[in-house]
């Protein structure tokens, strides 16, 4: 018999209906509780704070270590029951994993709030004390508040107003001043300034290339030759013309670029920019990067172990 109620969500202590009063109450109580814990930890002496921070660090790390080393269920169906204790723990870790990911997402979001708090504290204190450059702090605070306020108002209109629900606000002709303000602040100012900041790098690169990229040694000569080949290989038009020149030269000399009789490419292929750049990438660049990645991986593993076990002096032991 088909269970027609299978899709109906079941509510319990941990799962309550969206937008219900109970949900808001629980969010409020949790927020207050978390603020209390943070305030306690911030004011607690180091000898109290250290074991608390280490305990949570260890528990968080232990979960992912267990998830990594414990045998995982293969081809598990929704109603499958574990056959023994080992499989039971595997099932448990598997089931908990998405919830741990949710918690980690929430914790990372709290960092955003922490950043806003820190920004406001520093710049409001600068403004109150009328320190040097405090006008810049005023601009920063006003900009932040404006884009936050207008952003929320725009979101509210798109989600909850009649025009928003009917999808009319997708069209610019139906926009209200709030939607235009959001467009001006986010698309008009923030995005363009962000792009402009990044494009300034081009000026510094050009200036550095002119003044600093000098052939002073054999190593620098090799580096510059490689860089020039790789830079030219990005210029599709030039590469295309050069490679066709090589092909025409080969045709003029009656040398096939790919000789099926001896099953290898003609030596003139090596004159192609794509061949030279490909050789540099595949034979020199990629292996070097792989070696660097191995080094970084080993370093991260060592650092991770030290943090997890509370051995890192700059980490949880402070």
């Amino acid at each position: 018999m088909i269970n027609l109620l299978a899709q109906v969500p079941t509510y319990n202590f941990w799962r309550v209906p969206p937008l219900s009063g109970e949900l808001w109450l629980k969010i409020g109580v949790t927020l207050l509780l978390c603020c209390g814990i943070v305030a306690f930890l911030m004011n607690a002496p180091t000898r109290v704070r250290r074991p608390v921070v280490w305990f949570f660090t260890f528990i968080a790390g232990a979960f992912y270590v267990a998830l990594w080393i414990w045998p995982q269920p293969v081809s598990r169906e929704p109603n499958t029951l574990p056959r023994d204790g080992i499989e039971g723990i595997g099932f448990l870790l598997n089931d908990i994993q998405p919830r741990v990911a949710d918690v980690s997402n929430i914790l990372t979001t709290i960092l955003l709030g922490l950043g806003i708090y820190s920004l406001l504290r520093i710049h409001l204190s600068k403004i109150v004390k009328r320190q040097a450059d405090s006008p810049f702090s005023i601009v920063l605070i006003v900009s932040m508040l404006a884009i936050t306020l207008v952003g929320y108002m725009d979101w509210y209109m798109r989600e909850f107003s009649v025009a928003g629900k009917e999808g009319k606000l997708q069209e610019m002709v139906n926009w209200t001043p709030i939607n235009f303000a959001q467009n001006l602040l986010f698309d008009g100012f923030l995005q363009q300034m962000d792009s402009a900041m990044f494009s300034m790098i081009a000026f510094f690169i050009l200036s550095a290339a002119y003044r600093a990229f000098r052939i002073r040694s054999v190593e620098a000569t090799v580096l510059m030759a490689s860089a020039l080949i790789l830079m030219i290989s990005l210029l599709g038009g030039i590469v295309f013309a050069w490679n066709h020149g090589v092909a025409n030269m080969a045709a003029g000399m009656h040398i096939p670029l790919a000789n099926p009789e001896i099953n290898e490419a003609g030596y003139l292929n090596n004159l192609k920019i794509t061949s030279a750049a490909g050789w540099l990438r595949n034979t020199l660049q990629v292996p070097a990067l792989r070696a660097v990645d191995f080094g970084i991986g080993l370093g991260a593993l060592a650092m991770g172990l030290r943090l997890w076990l509370g051995l890192e002096k700059g980490g949880v032991t402070v």
Binding site: A202, I205, L206, A209, Y210, R211, A212, F213, R214, I215, R216, M224, L228, M231, I232, L234, L235, G236, G237, I238
Partner: peptide, 23 residues
């Protein structure tokens, strides 16, 4: 953008060559 990109990279190469000729 691709033609602009060509010119920017060529300018970079010319700048490197000029800098080294100067040296």
């Amino acid at each position: 953008y691709y033609l602009s990109f060509h010119f920017a990279i060529l300018l970079l190469i010319i700048a490197v060559i000029l800098g080294n000729v100067g040296m």
